[in-house]
Amino acid sequence: MTTESRQKSGIVLFLFVTFATAWASWGVAILLGGPAMSPPTVIPYLLGAFGPMFGAIVIRLRRTVRRQPAPAHSVRLPLIGLLWTPVLLVVAAATVVGGALIAQQLGGPPVSLNSALTLVQMSGGPLTFVAVMLVVGPLSEEFGWRGTLHPRLRGKMGRLFAGLVLGIIWSIWHLPLFFVTGTVQNAFGLLTFSGLTYLLSVIPMALLAAYAYDRAGVLGAVAVHFGANATMSLVGVTELLPQALIVGIQAVVALLLLAVHRDREKATTPEPAPRELVPAHR
C-alpha cells in the first residue's frame, strides 16, 4: 500500500471511530434527557467527548501492528514547545477577553470578575474548575484532532486548507450536543444566530490549534483549546455580539500567525543549487 493510500485509510478509520463513539454516546445522553453533568446522563456525555481519543488509539494501535512510521507532518514535543505553551495559552485567552471587552464598549454585556469567581466557586473551586475544563475538550480531543488527523491531512494539503477542513469536520462533530440538555450548545439552540455562530467559531479555533500544534505539538494545541474554553466560561459569553467579535478576532489572529510561520519556513528553506541549462527535449 502506498503512503497516500495509508493516509487516506487512516483518515477514514479515524473519522469513523471518532464519530461513531461520540455520536452513539451522545445519542444515549439525549435519550436519557437529564442535564449533561448530572447522573446518569454525565456518563455517556463525557464518554462521547473522548471520541477523538478513541480514534487516535485505534490508529496508533494499527500503526504499531503494521510497523508503519509516524506521518511526515507529525510534531513531537520539542523542548522549545514547553516555552511556547504558556504563550499560546495567553494568546487564546486574549482573543476571548479582547472580543468580550470590545463588545462591552459597543453596548454588549459587561465583563464581570464577580461572575467568573462565582462560576469557579460553583464548580467546586479553582482546581476542580481547571481539571474539568482541561479534561472535557483539550485532553479528550486534541490527541485525536491535532495529534492524529491534522498530520494526515497535512500530507494531502497545505496547512491552511488542512486547518479549514479539520475545522469543518470538528464543527459537524459537535452537532449532537445541541440536543443534550445542559450544554452550552443546547442553550444557544441549533437554528439560531448564536448556534450558527458557535459552529462557525470552531473553524478559527481549529486554525489556532493547528498553529499551536506546529509550534509545540499536542501540548500546544491543548493549551490553546484550554485557554479559549476556560476563558469563554469565565467571561460568560452567551450573547451574539461578543460571540461574533471573538470569532472575527480569532480568525484574524490565526491567519496572521499561520502566514508569519509560513514565511519563516520559506525564509529558512535553502534554495536549490543552480543547474546547468540544457535544451528541452520534446
Rank of each mutant, 00 (worst) to 15 (best):
K156Y: 03
A212K: 02
F14Y: 12
R146N: 02
T181K: 03
I168G: 01
L166M: 15
G124K: 14
F143I: 12
R67P: 07
R76N: 05
D214G: 15
V28Y: 08
T192I: 09
R264S: 12
T269F: 15
P126T: 06
S38T: 14
I249S: 03
G144D: 00
P138N: 12
V17E: 07
V253R: 15
F129L: 07
T41G: 08
N114S: 06
M122S: 14
P86S: 12
P176T: 08
A254S: 14
L15E: 07
W173N: 03
V235H: 06
V42D: 07
L241D: 06
G81K: 05
G236M: 05
P69Y: 00
F178L: 00
A131W: 15
L127D: 12
A259W: 07
E4M: 06
Q250V: 01
Q7V: 00
V180Q: 08
P35A: 14
L15Y: 06
V184D: 07
F50K: 13
L149W: 06
L15Q: 11
G98D: 09
T268F: 04
T192S: 09
L32V: 09
L127K: 09
S171W: 01
V75T: 02
A92V: 04
A206V: 11
M37V: 06
L196S: 04
N229H: 13
